[in-house]
Amino acid sequence: MAEFSVAEQMQLTEGMTEQQKFLFQAQYGAERKDRVRILVISVFLGAFGIDRFLVGDIGLGLLKLLTGGLLGILWLVDIFLIMGRVDDFNRTKAHEIAMTIRMSGPGVQAF
């Protein structure tokens, strides 16, 4: 999938008050992962599973850590796949944040 875009963010915040939109942007900005930063981490530390730990894939991170990236095979594959996984992580995190804000109602002051 493509990078989580501003248009998708606007669709998620549609119908929210300005305060809710501000809370969404603040929370999402704090929790999102940068695609390029994770790619660089994957290139240099991917054999140790650090890249997978950062995007919440604990099982794969442990597998890569304990096997040296399956002797480099998973490390090499992840160089090509990790940016898509970061996009999925960001999209999922944005949906969770939006749902939390919507459930808290229009008069919410803070998380």
Rank of each mutant, 00 (worst) to 15 (best):
M99E: 15
A2M: 12
D87S: 10
G72W: 06
E18I: 01
M10G: 06
G68Q: 07
G72P: 04
G59N: 01
D57L: 11
G72D: 08
W75S: 01
D51Q: 15
A2P: 14
K64M: 14
A47S: 09
F48W: 09
V55N: 02
R91E: 05
M83D: 02
L66V: 11
S5R: 09
R37A: 15
N90K: 07
G105P: 04
V77D: 00
S5W: 08
I50W: 15
V6E: 15
L65N: 05
M99F: 12
F111R: 11
A30Y: 13
E96H: 13
G61C: 08
F24D: 00
G49C: 11
L66C: 06
L76G: 06
I38W: 08
R32Y: 02
D57M: 03
I82P: 00
G59M: 02
R91H: 04
A30V: 01
F53T: 01
M103V: 10
F80V: 15
V6G: 03
F44P: 00
I82M: 07
M99H: 15
G107V: 00
A30W: 09
G46M: 10
E14S: 12
G56F: 07
D78V: 00
A7P: 07
L74Q: 01
L62P: 01
S42N: 15
K21T: 07
E18V: 04
P106W: 00
A98W: 09
F24M: 05
G59I: 06
V6I: 14
V86W: 06
A47E: 00
I73C: 08
G61N: 04
M16V: 02
T67H: 06
I73W: 09
I101Y: 12
S5Y: 05
I58E: 02
G61K: 08
G56L: 04
K21W: 03
G61E: 06
E96F: 10
T100W: 10
F53A: 08
G61D: 05
T17L: 09
D34W: 03
